[in-house]
Amino acid sequence: MAKYNGAKCRICRREGSKLFLKGDRCYTDKCAFDRRPYAPGQAGRSRKKVSDYAVMLREKQKVRRMYGILEKQFRSYFKKADMQKGVTGENLLALLERRLDNVVYRLGYANSRQQARQMVRHGVFTLNNRQANIPSMQVKVGDEIVVVEKHRKDPVLAEAQEVIARRGCPNWLEVDAPNFKGSVKALPQREDIQFPINEQLIVELYSK
């Protein structure tokens, strides 16, 4: 993801939805979106007439920023989803969910996807007993993600059990927190993604 040096909470406020970009802080009363649920800037509170195209664009931007990927990458995922059998929108979300950095986040070993991405790049995890340092790697059923022995005492990972207990783990994943291990039980389904996303708007946007 291109480096963004601004306040992450501004992104949530701009997209009009909590994207959980700051991890546990987003679950507390310190969350900026909860305190100021309107777009940033002087005109943030003003009501504007929004076109159909703007609605579709904002939905795409919301999902892209939530998973922390660039426009070129996002469009590539859409093309892959469109070529697969089934519903394009659901295929797109499944591809994004199967990214290694997202799986690490979903397993509870990171407070945010950005943190999970950094941890993957630093070689904190192995995938099927092989070093995995590419955040965009696609996991498949039966894959096993394990924390490298030397990293198991890191403060972030030491809190993994508490994070998992609080956030929960999706049904398509299985976590063995005491042994710093996670596995892929099945492919993610639409109902496994609880975040409010209207993927059909993204399909309509790219179909224009």
Rank of each mutant, 00 (worst) to 15 (best):
M56Q: 15
Y38P: 12
R45T: 06
P37S: 15
R47H: 13
R35P: 02
V50D: 10
S51P: 00
Y53E: 11
K49M: 08
C31E: 10
G68L: 09
A43Y: 08
Y38D: 01
Q42H: 14
V50L: 03
A39I: 06
R45Y: 01
F33G: 00
C31T: 02
A39L: 13
R64G: 11
K49H: 13
L57A: 07
C31A: 15
S46C: 03
V63A: 07
R64D: 04
K48H: 14
P37D: 11
M56T: 05
V63H: 11
Q42Y: 07
M66L: 06
M56A: 13
M66R: 10
R65D: 13
R65H: 14
P37H: 06
R64W: 08
K49Y: 02
C31D: 07
F33S: 01
L57G: 09
P40K: 10
Q61T: 12
R45V: 08
A43F: 08
V63I: 15
Q61N: 12
R36T: 14
K60L: 06
S51Q: 01
R36C: 03
G41L: 09
M66F: 02
Q61L: 09
K62N: 01
K48A: 12
G41Y: 05
A32Q: 00
R65P: 10
G41A: 05
R64F: 05
G41P: 04
E71N: 15
V50P: 04
V55Q: 05
Q42K: 14
E59Y: 03
C31I: 10
A32F: 01
V55T: 05
P40F: 09
Q42M: 12
S46V: 14
P40V: 07
G68K: 06
Q42S: 15
V63R: 03
S46H: 13
V50E: 07
V63C: 04
G44V: 10
R45F: 00
M66Q: 09
D52F: 11
E59L: 10
Y53C: 08
R65S: 14
A39H: 04
R35N: 15
F33K: 01
I69Y: 03
P40S: 05
G68R: 02
F33T: 05
K62R: 15
P37A: 02
G44S: 06
K60T: 04
V55M: 12
F33P: 00
R45I: 07
D34Q: 08
V50H: 03
D52N: 15
M66H: 12
R45D: 00
V50R: 13
Q42W: 08
R65A: 09
D34P: 00
R45G: 13
Q42L: 14
A39N: 13
Q61E: 11
A43H: 12
A54W: 01
R35F: 05
L70C: 02
I69P: 07
V55S: 10
Y67F: 11
K60R: 12
C31Y: 05
K48W: 14
R36H: 14
V55Y: 00
G41K: 08
G44A: 02
I69R: 00
S46L: 12
G41R: 05
P37K: 11
S46Q: 14
R45M: 07
Y38H: 04
C31K: 10
